[in-house]
Design a binder for these strands. Structure first.
Lengths: 130, 130
DNA sequence: AAAAATAACGCAACAATGTTGCGATTAAAA
DNA sequence: TTTTAATCGCAACATTGTTGCGTTATTTTT
């Protein structure tokens, strides 16, 4: 197996995630990094981080793709079977750490991963009554 | 409100959906139509059909976007709060009409829409043991 | 049935997002 | 310190989706 390295660019990307409460798109990360590294490098770092299970990919109803490093205080492994909330007003995506859907699958399916995204208005936007 | 028209292109797109058991991407639709109409027209038709609630948009974990006209035999209105299954092997997306997640939301969120996609192996690919 | 109104179309051009190849760089192992 | 290979930067390309505008065609009105 290929070993993975800690480069300055990778560290910088991870720091961006640490400082963000919401999920981030490639473009948003790029803006925050301002020219620490190339656009392509960010794509490659994101791919690696997903493979290493450090962040995960969230794809929205509107077709946009974001990434998040969820905060699992007491778990060692990154688990992403929880829900995400996508605000229709401010477009922020947040993890709903405690919302886990329960469901019954038909036979003959092997489920490896689930993606449960709810959209609507987040508390912030709901209170400023849009 | 703007009235909507039945054009040959729109009819052709709808027919493609009728003949498909799985969700389709813009590209897949375009291939099946072969030059009935322009690429841009397909985008516009898809937008219209989504607005008219005849089809719905599904966005995958891999970032791809597909559309489906789900088969709701006895309902008058198109409901899309059911789950979708995305096969990691054949990449087909099918509606799981009867799988509806149950969940408990935190307060202060207004949920308008849900997107519940499961991925793994579909029965077809599971049986041909990949 | 013909004329008027406008939804939908085609084309061209553009924008955003993601991918690939390859030579140069650099982190980590020897 | 030297080696090795993971990572990077750059350029070029591919895919997907959007916009403006003049033209076409569906629907409504006369």
């Amino acid at each position: 197996m290929k070993t993975t390295r800690n480069t300055t660019a990778k560290t910088a990307v991870l720091e961006v995630f640490e400082n963000s409460k919401t999920a981030l798109s490639h473009t948003e990360i790029q803006k925050q990094l301002n020219d620490v590294c190339d656009r392509v490098t960010i794509y490659r770092i994101l791919d690696r981080l997903v493979n290493e299970d450090i962040i995960h990919k969230i794809s929205n109803l509107d077709g946009t793709v974001k990434y998040a490093k969820c905060n699992h205080s007491h778990q060692r492994v990154h688990i992403h079977n929880h829900a995400h909330f996508s605000c229709e007003n401010c477009h922020e995506i947040t993890c709903l750490e405690n919302v886990k859907p329960s469901y019954i699958m038909p036979h003959n399916y092997k489920v490896n991963e689930i993606n449960f995204t709810l959209s609507g208005l987040c508390p912030k936007c709901l209170n400023s009554n849009i």
